[in-house]
């Protein structure tokens, strides 16, 4: 990676931070009763692992559970694998290819920016869907995932 590009990023990040601070100060006033909502891109797949409401609250638990299963046990074929999520939730950029997390239109970013929750997933993981995963992931959740889903539902009640 060229260092001028990196320093540009660093500067850009600082500038963006300042700009965001100024803007948010203004936005609160401008909103004037209306709550600004994030612009969440529509998913490509037919059906998610669970309903949207549930996923909004619990996607991190599912991902974390899956990450430990994958890394420590080697269980990889599960619906809750990050790559699968990225496949359905890919957002096409100007060139028609899925955008990466550095694009503010990225599915994960659209909401995380809004909620001001920073994540470090994509410092290691590719934020675009893998070649193989494209168009896949229609099979139903496996046994452990189902158990976890049930547990999380019970817990919320």
């Amino acid at each position: 990676m060229t260092s001028p590009a990196r320093s540009a990023h660093f500067l850009a990040a600082v500038v963006a931070l300042c700009a965001a601070l100024c803007w948010s100060a203004g936005a609160v006033r401008a909103a004037d009763g209306r709550v600004p909502m994030p612009d969440i891109p529509k998913a490509l797949g037919e059906r998610c692992v669970a309903e949207t409401d549930f996923m909004r609250r619990n996607h991190m638990t599912l991902l974390k559970h899956q990450r430990d299963e994958t890394v420590h046990l080697g269980v990889r074929k599960a619906e809750t694998q990050l790559d699968r999520c990225l496949t359905c939730h890919a957002v096409a950029g100007a060139d028609g290819k899925p955008v990466s997390y550095s694009d503010s239109g990225h599915f994960c970013r659209s909401c995380h920016d809004y909620a001001a929750v920073s994540i470090d997933c994509f410092e290691c993981h590719s934020s675009r869907p893998g070649q193989k995963a494209q168009g896949a992931s229609r099979d139903p959740p496996d046994e452990t995932t189902l158990k976890l889903l049930g547990y999380l539902r019970d817990k919320r009640r």
Binding site: M1, S100, E123, C124, S126, G130
Partner: peptide
């Protein structure tokens, strides 16, 4: 260094 375009696997 920060990485980009990692292999998904």
């Amino acid at each position: 260094e920060p990485q980009e375009n990692q292999r998904p696997e």
